[in-house]
Design a protein around this nucleic acid. Structure first.
Length: 336
RNA sequence: GGACGGGUGGGUGAGUGGUUAAUACCACCAGACUGUAAAUCUGGCGCCCGGAAGGGCUACGGGGGUUCGAAUCCCUCCCCGUCCA
């Protein structure tokens, strides 16, 4: 395997631009796309690797935690072996201390699509971050407004000293439409709305989403809730034996503190709490497992069994999913 | 054997005569998402009927009692913890 296969546009600017485009359409948009969605630990990665054996694919990660370098065990990142076998994009692209956001994600997916397209491969979107997946599948229009740490800090102070009403008033004076629409009980959203309004964006000035042109085959992998919990618990135990605690210890030692968004992930914050504050390890592990359960539940809000765009398969029956995608792919006019 | 302390809903744990089907937290369930998302926020959570308002039933270790009314007071039994023998 050529070693350049390991991703990819770290800085984003130096993405090679293929001189020969497959067609004259937007090079950032694939003609077709396969997506694998579903709750954590259900077997999405496994399915992706199976598909890679029969279809010329490159993986596009849709996981808000696997983007960070040095966070491998706890994020259940695809193994280096898997990454050697199949080109992965949007994995290991930033440092744990770097800012990341949905708009950044979307931007980088476009870059990745360009590469995949120039390789005459099919992008396969794999991940459990519902927001990322849906942003791609539904073509969300996300304004590129970078986070403003100073403003956020000021507003958070304001929130503590003067209350939510106060910052809501600020939002109203900036953008009434935004004020009408925000979740007025969710400080985080109010702060973001202010941030947006202050940088000159008006609520509703652009359509929220624009249906993408590609043909998408979306498969879901899931199972009974109790079984999902059990699988996730087992996987967490495996992570512990694989050295998750050492990974967190290393991150902390390397200066990645618990206050970083990257370190707020499941397991990372609990284990850091154990290492830093002496919280009982078993308790920390149990908390992380519970949090994974909650995560699974929330993923089911993004990936609904009633969603007609998704064809669902049971975790235990990956073969059927492979067959389904193969059939869908063979019927497609866009074979590479 | 004696002296205290304690037994509360799936768990931890408040409550100490009525406003209590019982605070809070966890678990669990459902939902939102103009997007920091493995984040943040909302709702539900004894059983039955009802769309709701509401109604009915059962419940704070077991049994008995006091009271118009008890998780809360008394008696008794069982169990757990600490200390003294």
């Amino acid at each position: 395997m050529p070693e350049e296969r390991r991703d990819s546009g770290v800085e984003g600017e130096d993405i090679p631009f293929s001189p020969v485009m497959p067609d004259d359409r937007d090079p950032d948009v694939p003609d077709r796309l396969i997506a694998i969605v579903g709750p954590t630990a259900a077997g999405k990665t496994e399915l992706a690797m199976r598909l890679a054996q029969i279809i010329p694919v490159e993986v596009i990660g849709a996981d808000s935690r696997q983007v960070y370098r040095h966070m491998d065990i706890g994020t259940a990142k695809p193994s280096t072996r898997d990454q050697d076998l199949v080109q992965h994009h949007l994995v290991d692209i930033i440092d744990p201390s770097d800012d990341f956001s949905l708009s950044e994600y979307i931007c980088r997916v476009k870059q990745a699509n360009r590469i995949v397209k120039s390789n005459y491969n099919v992008p396969i979107l794999v991940g459990g971050t519902g927001q990322y997946v849906m942003a791609i599948l539904e073509g969300w229009n996300v304004p590129r407004i970078a986070p403003d740490p100073e403003l956020r800090a000021r507003l958070e102070d304001d929130l503590v000293t003067n209350g939510l009403e106060h910052i809501l008033d600020e939002l109203r004076s900036l953008d009434v439409a935004a004020w009408e629409s925000v979740d007025k009980r969710n400080p985080r959203r109010v702060i973001r709305a202010i941030e947006r309004a202050r940088s000159g964006h008006r609520w509703g000035e652009k359509p929220v989403r624009e249906r993408p042109s590609f043909e998408a085959t979306v498969v879901g992998v899931s199972g009974e809730r109790a079984e999902l919990h059990a699988r996730a618990d087992r996987r967490f135990d495996q992570m512990m034996t694989d050295g998750f605690l050492d990974e967190v210890r290393w991150l902390l030692k390397s200066g990645y503190g618990p206050e970083l968004p990257a370190m707020s992930g499941i397991g990372y914050s609990e284990l850091a709490d154990h290492l830093l504050n002496g919280t009982d390890l078993q308790l920390a592990i149990q908390r992380a497992k519970f949090r994974t359960h909650r995560y699974i539940r929330q993923q089911s809000n993004w990936f609904k069994t009633s969603d007609e765009r998704i064809t669902w398969f049971d975790s235990a029956g990956i073969d059927k999913a492979v067959d389904f995608v193969r059939a869908a792919f063979e019927d497609s006019p866009h074979k590479a």
